[in-house]
Write a protein that binds this DNA or RNA. Structure first.
Length: 107
DNA sequence: AGTCTGACGGTAT
DNA sequence: AATACCGCCAGAC
């Protein structure tokens, strides 16, 4: 496994996030075997922000359901896209993970 | 080569 | 319940 395989794994997981579902950085990190490297997952996504439109990076949130990656999208695009997919938000702008969380390990 | 930063997360206070 | 701190590790400088 080369170093860049880490990124490839991240992308392969993110690609599998179903429409209308979200997952977390930590869950992805666990799935690809780097349990404590959730930060690297976010880093990997930021690296490809704007490159691959097919990559549903907007469906990745932190463990609290916060859209920490919103700054990589124009304006409120990230939140708007999630809403468009039928994802419910709390009044504190957090995704309702109890309803929309998708575990990559199961999927 | 050393230091700092960050789309995170868990534990301690 | 809210903050603070620390581990994580690839890049930028």
């Amino acid at each position: 496994m080369s170093d860049s395989d880490f990124y490839e794994k991240v992308y392969s997981v993110v690609e599998r996030i179903p429409y209308g579902k979200v997952t977390t950085y930590g869950a992805i990190a666990r799935t690809i075997g780097l349990v404590s490297s959730a930060r690297m997952v976010g880093y990997a996504l930021q690296r490809t922000a704007g490159k691959e439109d097919s990559l549903p990076a907007h469906r990745v949130v932190n463990r609290l359901g916060e859209l920490t990656g919103h700054h990589s999208f124009p304006g409120d695009t990230m939140r708007e896209r999630l809403i468009q997919e039928g994802i419910a938000f709390t009044e504190t702008y957090r995704v309702d993970l109890t309803r929309h969380f998708w575990n990559p390990s199961e999927g």
